[in-house]
Amino acid sequence: MAAQARPRILELKRVSKAFGGLQVIDGLDLHVDEGEIVSVIGPNGAGKTTLFNLITGVYAPDHGEILLDGRSLVGLAPHKITRRGIARTFQTLRLFLNMTVKENVMAAAYGHTKARVWQSILRTPGARREERAIHELAEDKLGFFGQRLMGYRWNQPAYSLSYANRRRLEIARATATNPRVLLLDEPAAGMNPTETHEIAELIGQLRTEGGYTILVIEHDMHVVEGISDRVVALDHGTKIAEGSFEAVATDPRVVEAYLGTKAAATK
């Protein structure tokens, strides 16, 4: 008897995107079920970050559909898409460097708060309550990472953080938008083995404790192996394999994409 199918929270149907003459994404079908952790792998230039940009509305797809909970996201402004429940981190960090750690996270709470300008200026009770709530939310999200981003760190400018802490802050900031789906773009990039291990555990915790559905772009296969429920391999903008990590890692097409035809032949 089949287990009750989990709802597809995010779905891409035959999405295509070209820049100039270059077809970056070509007829891509992808779906993520609620509560899943799906990893997207593929060689450089396969279109992975473009995929994230399409989902979050930075680019509009030329063809195809992108659905969140069955509702189309195509054509919406990025900030609306974020409010619908999708948040992301960036391959090259994009923090608000001159703002404090806490402010970075608090800023992301804009979408689900509603104090108006006049309410903020007059410091109405409602506005003050909301401010406190935002503070607590930020402290809560930052607390996810243990003591690293807590205490005195809250008031330090973001540029004073180490690289690994910056990556963590970016994740914290994304979670402050109260999303349902998290898109993590190479969260372990540039980290040493200890930090990588920590990030992998963290992603798992994000799912179990935070309840987020997570779509991850990653190059480090140890991380992919450790966290993924399902792996999707892309090359030249199309899906070339999908399934469990073992299935995808040994798929000849995937090996060929990464290592070339000869390597695929010897596998």
Binding site: T56, V58, A77, P78, H79, T82, R83, A87, R88, F90, R94, L95, F96, L97, N98, M99, E103, N104, A107, A108, A109, Y110, G111, H112, R173, A174, A176, T177
Partner: peptide, 16 residues
């Protein structure tokens, strides 16, 4: 301030 720092990142963090 977020908008001044990085408009694209701000937009993606739900800021219109």
């Amino acid at each position: 301030r977020a908008l001044r720092e990085d408009p694209l990142a701000a937009e993606l963090m739900s800021i219109p």
